[in-house]
Design a binder for these strands. Structure first.
Length: 345
DNA sequence: GTTCTAGAAC
DNA sequence: GTTCTAGAAC
């Protein structure tokens, strides 16, 4: 077969993917089962000049304006545009005899590849953010975007209806497939940073590893470097935060997170947010329910694991106490009124 | 994780 | 009467 089929990334995020005649290639099917939702199966027919596209996972795939849908298969011909992950990654089909610029699709479907790499290569890739497209002077190849404080009210979204926040996989699914509502402010080959959908302070980011770690209990010595990296990335968020000089921040973990995917909270200590509504919210950030990132790392280095004291969940029921002056407050509204006194002028 | 709401607290 | 919380439902 003299003709070669190429899937060309329109945003030039990587070299064209070469597809061989009648040989199925699955993109986005990583080592981790949780990423199966991203998978798309491609099979080129070089003699007839089309690629059949089958959406295996829930990752919204579309050809031009037509959504493929999970389990469905469509044909894409030269001139048509294939989108993966909610119109994020556009591709065009090209049939050519020149294979010099192509990168074998086999490379992309290796099990060790993480799914977000299906669109680009290397560490610290840039992130498209509709909110802000300026680069920061702090990094050469990382783009950190949208450093404005969170809006007082969050926008409703279609995807919210399908969110089950208690399951890490769904949380991840939404981070990846609905980037407009879960803006990725940074990502590299190890982690992704998003703004907390329901920020409990003026600045509240989550640093999530691509590789799923269910809870602090699952952490082992081998995770030390990842956790250190997460903390560095968290610190980097502060470097580009315009209010970092006047606000204080804490970086840490909830000992018993409701979301089953280890994530580092980077949160300013003003706790000035309409999303902070109840005792559980407050105590989860101001009691020992919240453990400092450095303490988790130290524990892991020292003991090879992280132990959570029994009865930690009871801390969430403690009376409301100001984290600055430790004065007890009777209700959330009173606490919020009190906190204003500690805000920087 | 959030939203909703009955009933406790005031 | 209103405000606020806590627990069920999602």
């Amino acid at each position: 077969m003299p003709v070669c089929c190429l899937l060309v990334s329109e945003d030039d995020s990587h070299k064209p993917i070469q597809l061989h005649h009648q040989r199925s290639v699955t993109l986005g099917r990583g080592q981790k089962k949780m990423f199966f939702f991203l998978a798309v199966e491609l099979r080129a027919d070089c003699s007839r000049g089309f690629i059949s596209v089958k959406q295996l996972g829930v990752n919204p795939t579309s050809v031009d304006n037509v959504v493929v849908g999970k389990g469905n298969q469509v044909i894409i011909k030269p001139g048509q545009r294939l989108y993966m992950v909610n119109q994020q990654y556009p591709y065009r089909v090209k049939f050519t005899e020149d294979t010099s610029t192509a990168r074998s699709a086999a490379d992309l479907s290796k099990p060790s590849k993480r799914p977000h790499q299906m669109s680009s290569e290397g560490n610290g890739e840039k992130i498209k953010s509709p909110a802000n497209t300026t680069s920061t002077p702090h990094t050469d190849h990382h783009r950190i975007s949208d450093d404005s404080p969170p809006p007082k009210k969050t926008l409703p979204s279609e995807s919210d209806k399908s969110v089950n926040w208690s399951k890490g996989i769904n949380y991840f699914k939404n981070i990846l497939i609905a980037p407009n509502f879960y803006p990725q402010v940074y990502k590299d080959d190890q982690v992704v940073v998003i703004k907390d959908k329901y920020p409990k302070a003026q600045y509240h980011w989550l640093v999530l590893p691509w590789d799923s770690i269910s809870s602090l209990k699952a952490l082992r010595s081998e995770h030390v470097e990842l956790l250190k990296h997460m903390q560095r990335v968290g610190d980097q968020m502060l470097q580009q935060c315009p209010d970092a000089h006047k606000l204080s921040f804490r970086l840490g973990y909830h000992t018993i997170p409701s979301m089953s995917h280890v994530h580092l909270h980077v949160i300013s200590q003003d706790f000035d947010s309409p999303c902070l509504k109840n005792k559980k919210h407050w105590n989860s950030f101001t009691t020992d329910y919240f453990v400092e990132s450095r303490d988790v790392i130290a524990m892991l280095e020292h003991d090879g694991k992280v132990t959570v004291k029994e009865g930690t969940s009871e801390l969430l029921k403690l009376p409301l106490r100001c984290h600055v002056c430790h004065k007890e407050q009777p209700t959330i509204p009173k606490l919020k009124e009190h906190l204003k006194a500690h805000l920087p002028s």
